[in-house]
Amino acid sequence: MTVDTDRIPLKISRYTEGQTTDGYDEYMVPYNEDWVVLDALNYIKDYVDGSLAYRWSCRMGVCGSCGMMINGKPKLTCSAFLSEYYPDPIVVEPLANFRVERDLIVDMDDFIHKLDSVKPWLIEGDSVPPANREYKQTPAQLAKYKQYSMCINCTLCYSACPVASNEPEFVGPAAIALAQRYNLDSRDSGKEQRLDVLMANEGVWDCTFVGECSNVCPKGVDPAAAIQQAKLESALAYAKSLIMPKGNK
């Protein structure tokens, strides 16, 4: 523990339903170099102001609840150490590009709908193994999609994306990465069904390849890459449909 006089200021965005003006509250929090921003929020909630509302759960970077804007950048608060900012003040705001429900809590419905829209589940083909046998999948086949299966749905990528900012209907990085996760899975046969969503106006072609989604991803998923690959596949599928209009769909 450091000495009591060692403190760090936090400026936190506040909102309660019906409020029309932007509001921030400032708190002084004891500085502890082991603490993450989430620890500071918990300190405020427990000992200073019990009305501060935010989401959190696992505090080990895997549940995806505690994403917020920290000094304007989307981050998991459980992985952002105070020492990265000390002694400068830390500004904590709700994730950008989402509707705010309360203080640091945003509306996730929209994201859940987008996730659902890309059919992120294994769509069986003709050769399903019997109930007592697994699909064979070599480590190399696993490696093809493994990276895209690491998404924790924290939605930091939506907050970093200027396209999602200007075009709220854009399906977005995490959902497209998950579509690719199943498209690239050797056990899956649903690629064509998912292409319908990916090729639509709000799908992959909205993306202008800013690449910031991959920069902020706390799990190294690289959704930007997934989107570019989906673009390539979507273009090939389109070309194929021109050459063979009736294709073997």
Binding site: E93, P94, N97, F98, R99, V100, D107, P162, P168
Partner: peptide
Amino acid sequence: RDTRPRPDLGATWW
């Protein structure tokens, strides 16, 4: 839903 603020990155995102 629509009554709530939606802070975005703004025109100066770049």
